[in-house]
């Protein structure tokens, strides 16, 4: 754990190389009440960031809010779920050649002030994926006991399978470098994607670091995880995590990417 503390202490010194292009992916499903503020906050952190709100088939004007706050918006024709929405952002990042892609929730629970800490190690090439961990922060996140127990179980399973100690495997606040962007653009789990995708990244032999981040309570809306669902969540994710470990190192080439004709000039 000590190396993470070092990272936290040094975070103010981390410079983001000016050549890197950073995209912040904000998946949003019916978050009209908060998305505008979140976009504005991200803009306030540093000016060079480009923000892509992926509107996952919202019916409450989320896209309009995001647009008027100055974000780029991709509107999905219908609700795909968090995995499909986030993957859209990674595909955008790949297509437009971004060096770093950060995912940040639209409900306001991820503090944009932590962005430099997450982007830093990835932009500097020290890590392929930086995960914002809620449990590493000093006066960190207090979840209900049952949820903490579930999260502990998940981190134990993921840590065991990857041979790397993970504290917060369910965090949806993370920064990905070019190799992870490419990987997630090709394959990304549909629901509850975070723990499973961590296993996949580690199995590719890529480097993951956990960075302490603060976690605010959501400003509007409800968590999608109810008690019964969380049981399903744990079982599904554990299964997915184990299956993911069974998969070969090299996954079959993606059918879609193979057939696709890129419109960009450079690839």
């Amino acid at each position: 754990m000590h190396f993470m503390k070092d990272m936290a202490d040094n975070s103010h010194k981390l410079n983001i190389p000016t050549a890197s292009r950073v995209l912040v992916i904000v998946p949003a499903y019916n978050e009209a009440g908060t998305v505008g503020r979140v976009v504005a906050e991200i803009k306030g952190v540093f000016s060079g960031l480009e923000i892509l709100v992926v509107d996952d088939g919202s019916v409450d004007g989320t896209a309009a809010e995001a647009r008027s706050a100055g974000a780029r918006v991709v509107e999905l024709p219908f609700n795909l779920g968090i995995g499909g929405a986030v993957q859209t952002g990674y595909r955008y990042a790949l297509e437009y050649g971004y060096d770093v892609a950060v995912q940040l929730d639209a409900d306001g629970q991820h503090d944009p002030a932590d962005l430099p800490r997450l982007v830093g190690p990835v932009a500097a090439g020290e890590a392929d994926l930086a995960v914002g961990s809620r449990f590493l922060a000093p006066n960190g996140y207090r979840a209900p006991f049952t949820r903490r127990a579930g999260m502990l179980l998940l981190s134990l399973a993921v840590s065991l399978l990857t041979g790397h100690r993970f504290f917060d495997t369910t965090s949806g606040y993370r920064a990905a470098g070019a190799r992870v962007i490419e990987m997630f653009a090709a394959h990304y789990p549909a629901d509850y994607p975070e723990p499973e995708s961590l296993v996949a990244v580690r199995r590719r032999g890529l480097k993951v670091v956990e960075v302490p981040v603060g976690m605010r309570s959501r400003q509007a809306g409800f968590s999608s995880i109810t008690p019964w669902r969380s049981v399903y969540y744990i079982v599904k994710v554990l299964l997915a995590v184990f299956v993911s470990a069974l998969r070969g190192r090299e996954e079959a080439e993606d059918e879609w990417e193979r057939r696709r004709i890129p419109f960009d000039c450079c690839r």
């Binding site: 480009e50 992926v54 955008y92 437009y96 960009d264 000039c265």
Partner: peptide
């Protein structure tokens, strides 16, 4: 579909806008 629609919007917005928000994909080159 979502990504293509976004791209259409960018193209429709014209080169001036694109330069300002540097959303031209050719920037990636």
């Amino acid at each position: 579909v979502g990504l293509l629609r976004r791209r259409l919007e960018e193209l429709a917005a014209g080169p001036g806008d694109v330069a300002e928000t540097h959303s031209d994909p050719h920037d990636a080159c």
